[in-house]
Each structure stands twice: as C-alpha cells, then as structure tokens.
Amino acid sequence: MKLKSLLVSLGLLAGASIAQAEEPLKVGFVYVGPVGDLGWSYEHDMGRKGLEEYFGDKVKTTFVENVPEGADAERVITQLAKAGNDLIFTTSFGFMNPTVKVAKRFPKVTFEHATGYKLSKNLGTYVLRTYESRYISGVTAGMMTKTNTIGYIGSFPIPEVIRDINAVYMGAKSVNPDVKIKIVWANTWYDPGKETDAANALMDQGVDVMLQHTDSPAPLIAAEKRGLRAIGQASDQSKFAPNAHIFSVRDNWAPYYIKEVQAVMDGTWQSKDFWGGIQDDMLTLASINPNLPKDVRAKIDSTYAMIKSGEFKPFTGPIKDNKGNIAVPANHSLTDVELAQVNWYVEGITDKIPH
C-alpha cells in the first residue's frame, strides 16, 4: 500500500513537472507610442504578433503602449517584471536608464533594450542599421528634388537620428553636388499635429522632398496636399499619399524577436549588442512607387544591392565633419561602437545639433 502511494505521489510530481515545463514563456514589450502610429511602435507590435504566430502557445506576450520616457517607463518595466515576464523588450532610446535600473533589481529576468548601448549580465541591446536605408533615401531624394532642397524632420538629437541625417545627406550629395538639407526638430516621436507643422515649415522653405524620423503619416499627407514628395518611416505608409509617397523604409523586427525568444527557451541567451540591417532582411523598402523615373528606380535598386551584398558601407572614409575635421579616415568604415557615438554632422550640413 505504501509502495502504491509512493508511486502515485511520484506520478503526481512528474505530472506537475511536465505541466510546469509546458508553461509558456512570458514576454513583455514596452512601446513609446501607440501601436496605431503606423510607424516605429506599430512595427515592434507586428514583430510581437509574428512571435506569437511562430511559437503559438509556447509564448504569452503582453505590451504596454504610450509609455513616456522617464519615471513612468521605470514603473511600467517594473510592473512587467513583477508580473512574471521572463523576457522584456523596451523599445525606445529613452527607456535605457530605466531598463538598466530594473534589470539590476530583477537578475533572473532577461531584458533587451532597443537603440541603447548599456549592457549587463541580464541586459542586451539591439538596433537597426537605419543609416543604410537612409542613405538610399538620400540618393533618391537627391535625384528627385527640383529645388535642390530636401528636408528632414528630426525627433530628438540622439546618435541614431544624427547618424541617419548624415546618411541621408551623404546619399543625396553622391548624386547631386548642389543639394542642401534643411532640418526641423519636432521633439517628439509621435505627434501628428507637430509633424504636420514641421512638414509645412520645411515645404515653406523650398523643400520638395521630405524625410522623417517621426512615426505618423502626417508629413506624407502634408506633402500629398501640396503636390510634393516624401519617404515613409518605419512601416509601409503608401496608402496615405499615393502620389507623394516614393517608398517607405520598413522595419522588420520579427526575425530578431523569434531568435531571442528561442535563445531564452534554450538557455543559450547571452548579453550582446546586436545590429541588424538590410543584410539581415530587417530593413526593407516597401511599396516603391511605380511613378518614379526609370533612372531613379534603377539607382534605388543598385544602391540597395550594393549595401545588401556588403560591397558598400555608407560610413566609409574619408568623411569630414561640418567643421572641416576628418571624422572618418580614408578606407575606414565606422565600427558599431563608433557608429553609436556619432554626434557630429557631415560636411555641407549647416545646421547646429541642438543640446
């Protein structure tokens, strides 16, 4: 009788172990904007949905949207950790320090922060090589402009944004030596009203091709109303401006999220600084407009192919900054560490970086 009871107990214990092993991995996401922004946060959420589709009931995801960068972010990240999430992705630069603080308090939780640079044992970072697609955008804008004036709506003056402005201008300059760039800082990631105002301010200054580092389709809509051209940000925004839209740069996060979740499941996850780009199919050009001139379309395709093959890297010297100093020596391509520290404009950009 005792043996039978022991076997039953063992069986129950084994069953409990199997049930525990089959519990889904809980994955949390923190977004700076609404998932409906049709830009940065939207594409991160598409990556989350891709994760669910790939793993099915092996994962359980949750997200918090519209989280301000600062104290609110720390509170939200802490709540996700306390709720039992095994892996938490924080998806905006301003979440960096709050993520670092929470990661220290929850050493058994794995954290990953997008676009930052601070690592710890249980905290990794990941970023897109958006400067690759920005260079192509610049080449296109340089060929398309009739006023020789292109515009850029900046969000915040962080290295990622400054790096991308430089890439746009270098790309434009490579095909049009007379091109100028005008920059307006919206000081927001997502605010359709501010983005519309910024777009109109640029177009009032003679800009006829516009790029943006903000997330709503408002700048494209503004360009459509005035018969000018623009390039979409982070997701396919073609439907908002069928004539103005040149193409959109689309961020594809799903492959990375799937890979990192699998690593956590397998127990092989390690803290690292990951950079993904065109070569990784994490950056694509969406809905290239058929109304483009043939030579422009050909140049888009050839530049894309050179970057994808590794034949061309945009930040390869010699490159001077706008004060005349050598910023990148001849034949040197900026390393990832150096790219993360870009806080200077290239030669030809007359604006000053705000502080």
Score class of each variant (00 low, 15 high):
172 A>F: 03
187 N>R: 12
152 Y>D: 02
166 N>T: 10
162 I>H: 06
196 T>Q: 13
165 I>D: 06
207 V>W: 10
121 K>Y: 10
153 I>H: 05
155 S>I: 06
121 K>L: 08
151 G>P: 10
141 A>V: 08
131 Y>F: 15
144 M>W: 11
190 Y>G: 01
151 G>M: 14
188 T>W: 03
191 D>C: 07
198 A>S: 15
172 A>K: 11
207 V>H: 08
143 M>P: 10
154 G>C: 07
139 V>N: 03
156 F>K: 12
152 Y>S: 10
195 E>W: 12
185 W>R: 09
169 Y>V: 07
184 V>E: 11
179 V>G: 07
167 A>V: 00
156 F>N: 10
121 K>F: 06
171 G>M: 02
164 D>F: 00
183 I>M: 04
124 G>A: 15
140 T>R: 01
166 N>M: 06
127 V>C: 05
205 Q>N: 15
122 N>F: 12
184 V>Y: 08
137 S>T: 10
158 I>P: 00
173 K>G: 09
166 N>I: 06
189 W>T: 09
150 I>H: 07
173 K>R: 15
122 N>A: 13
168 V>F: 13
145 T>C: 11
166 N>A: 02
145 T>P: 06
189 W>F: 15
182 K>N: 13
121 K>R: 14
205 Q>V: 11
171 G>S: 02
208 D>L: 11
170 M>L: 15
203 M>S: 13
185 W>D: 08
150 I>V: 14
131 Y>L: 00
136 I>E: 00
150 I>D: 03
202 L>G: 04
163 R>K: 15
157 P>A: 05
163 R>T: 10
139 V>W: 01
130 T>K: 01
162 I>Y: 03
127 V>H: 10
149 T>P: 00
168 V>Q: 05
171 G>C: 06
181 I>Y: 03
178 D>T: 01
175 V>M: 05
175 V>P: 08
202 L>W: 06
154 G>W: 02
151 G>A: 14
182 K>S: 04
190 Y>M: 02
185 W>L: 07
164 D>N: 14
153 I>G: 04
172 A>L: 07
156 F>W: 14
126 Y>A: 03
130 T>M: 09
209 V>N: 07
196 T>H: 07
152 Y>N: 09
120 S>M: 08
140 T>Y: 02
171 G>Y: 03
128 L>G: 01
208 D>P: 02
127 V>F: 01
201 A>H: 00
162 I>T: 04
199 A>H: 04
159 P>W: 09
166 N>F: 06
188 T>F: 05
152 Y>Q: 08
154 G>T: 01
153 I>A: 03
170 M>G: 00
162 I>P: 01
124 G>R: 04
183 I>K: 08
145 T>S: 15
169 Y>N: 07
197 D>N: 14
185 W>E: 05
194 K>Y: 05
